[in-house]
């Protein structure tokens, strides 16, 4: 564990991410192109839902990623609170807007799928409501980062809120089993295997992998930006202190 923590210091992360990023972005692009091609030109329409099933290929990966990014943030929150790791709150801060965007995509595409299939854009169903709560938690976390100036204080406050909010993730996952919902139960990751035909399952899995790599690439860029923002902040403070000292000595800056 100690060596893993040593390995993940900001300087090493900047060096490693610069090498990894082009590969990650290229792999994401290839998977997304192949996945969208299969989803649009190879996968058949559903026998009940017809062509609207094509919304599945963006809706389901968005739902998975919204929950995955929140779970990553909960792990980072532990890193911040337990190990005080310098990259943990950087990772957490960078993940929040990305997770929020996928939660938003999940809700919007779900509403656009719900209207033709259920006859309504929205119901206060357990799955839909718990996903909306996830989006609101994401927005709360983003807001908290913005109101607290000092990064390490903000990191600890956000970590506590993130861990409290994590209770919502299993609620989203199991809401369709625990309550009677309009939303269908799990059809991919379930006991007894997927209920999706391979002609629909493969495009979905390829697109899910593509969206995941795309999101991880964005997360890496965002973490790099956050590390640089903190360096800029530290250097600006040091420069201001130096100018203050010089002014006190009566010397020109």
């Amino acid at each position: 564990m100690a060596s893993l923590i040593d390995l993940a210091n900001p300087t090493r992360f900047m060096r490693l991410s610069a090498v990894l990023l082009p590969w990650l972005a290229a792999a994401a692009a290839v998977l997304l192109v192949v996945g969208f091609y299969l989803a649009w030109f190879s996968a058949p329409p559903d026998y009940q839902q017809g062509e609207t099933v094509r919304i599945l290929y963006v809706h389901v990966p968005a739902a998975w990623l919204a929950m995955m990014f929140y779970s990553m943030m909960a792990l980072s929150a532990l890193g911040t609170l337990v190990w005080r790791h310098p990259l943990a709150d950087v990772a957490q801060k960078a993940a929040a807007p990305i997770g929020a965007c996928f939660a938003l995509i999940c809700l919007v595409t779900g509403a656009l799928w719900g209207k033709p299939m259920w006859g309504t854009y929205w119901v206060w169903d357990a799955r839909l409501t718990s996903m909306l709560v996830l989006l609101l938690i994401y927005l709360g976390i983003i807001a908290l980062w913005r109101v607290l100036d000092e990064p390490s204080r903000a990191g600890r406050a956000v970590a506590i809120l993130t861990l409290i909010g994590f209770v919502n993730v299993p609620i989203i996952k199991f809401s369709v089993d625990w309550w009677n919902t309009l939303h269908q139960p799990a059809s991919v990751f379930r006991m007894g295997g997927s209920t999706l035909d391979p002609s629909m399952l493969w495009p979905l899995l390829i697109l899910a992998a593509g969206f995941t790599l795309f999101a991880l690439a964005l997360h890496m860029v965002s973490m790099r930006a956050e590390i640089m923002r903190r360096r800029v902040r530290t250097l600006t403070i040091l420069e201001a202190e130096r100018l203050d000292r010089l002014a006190a000595q009566g010397a020109p800056a």
Partner: peptide
């Protein structure tokens, strides 16, 4: 089919949100 607007609307929403997110992250970087 008859629900083309909903299908295309979903994909348009995905494109708008993800392009906006990527642009904002790259600009910040």
């Amino acid at each position: 089919g008859p629900h083309a607007d909903y299908i295309l609307g979903s994909y348009a929403a995905v494109a708008v949100v993800l392009v906006g997110l990527a642009a904002s992250i790259l600009r910040d970087h």
